[in-house]
Design a protein around this nucleic acid. Structure first.
Lengths: 169, 169
DNA sequence: CCTCTTAGTTAGGCTTATCTAACAATTATG
DNA sequence: CATAATTGTTAGATAAGCCTAACTAAGAGG
């Protein structure tokens, strides 16, 4: 039922979904540019997606995901976002690196682990009073190579009111 | 200089290193069993590793990693451990799932991100007084679907004295 | 409506990484 | 030490996924 597709197929499905959300027709050229592959690769991939029942594509015509295809695309995207948010918000990795890492790893995280990761981010970032102090402490640790004596004394996880990472994505 | 090899090549290098650490001669058969591939695949992979200067292997003879090969193997293994420890110790994922996830993702985490992840685990698990209370709070959140009111009141990250995860690996 | 440009497809080749079947070398055993 | 069992290699097939080159379809401008 929930068999994973190849990394490549997942990438195509995800790209089609994202391009569709961006608006306008989803074309071979757009997919090609978005994914950094040549157009014949897209045509070839599309024929496999169609064969597997994940997309529809009439010659020279429109490209759409089927229900099945969309479900997979959303799954992949969810994994992508969870990984990216973790890397950026918790580990303080720069956005471009985080995105690249997420793009590569999104195909390999089990559903159990995504679920946990999602909950973890929710738990940490959803701290009622804002960014947890212990996370501030981690930043200090990253920058200074040692624990902040103040944090160690208090060992407090009281939350900051304003979050440093205010952007939605 | 630090070009990443393919996932498959990294897997072979890692397996050879681990088998070597386990003791005894590293043989085609052992590699084959450890990795779940047939023996001709191992022979073929070995010839590529030798060609790239990552291993030595005389016909019907001994298999060893070169310095270059060992360096890569250690890198991969480090990523593996970081991911696994994170999944188990922080996200409370079961060991077998964590290992599988780590095995697949270990090839795709950038060096910057491993570094951060390592530091993160070090920071969290190395809390002077033991397992942080906020992490206990996360466990509660996982099991009950909501924050523990007590933790919310205190929002404390004081550490438990004894760690629940006492094993080294 | 004809031509030129752009978009998409087809054909064919390459690489990686796997497999099976058959063969060769090595090791163990009576 | 001769033969059987194990171990390792070679040859050849297959599949995914990418590429280039060449072709065809569709659409835009004069």
């Amino acid at each position: 039922m929930t068999d994973r597709q190849s990394a490549s197929m997942e990438d195509y499905l995800e790209a089609i979904m994202v391009l569709d959300r961006e608006g306008g027709k989803v074309t071979v050229t757009r997919i090609s540019q978005a994914m950094g592959v040549k157009k014949p690769s897209v045509t070839s991939a599309l024929s496999r997606l169609v064969e597997m029942g994940f997309a529809t594509h009439e010659k020279y015509g429109e490209i759409h995901l089927t229900g099945k295809g969309l479900r997979i695309a959303r799954d992949v995207y969810k994994r992508h976002q969870a990984l990216k948010r973790f890397l950026i918000d918790i580990l303080d990795v720069k956005e471009d690196i985080a995105s690249e890492d997420a793009c590569r790893m999104e195909h390999y995280l089990s559903s159990i682990s995504v679920e946990r990761l999602d909950k973890f981010i929710e738990y940490v970032m959803g701290c009622p009073q804002g960014k947890p102090l212990w996370l501030e402490g981690f930043n200090y640790y990253l920058n200074h190579g040692k624990r902040n004596p103040e944090h160690m004394a208090a060992c407090s996880s009281r939350c900051k009111v304003s979050s440093k990472n205010g952007k939605l994505f």
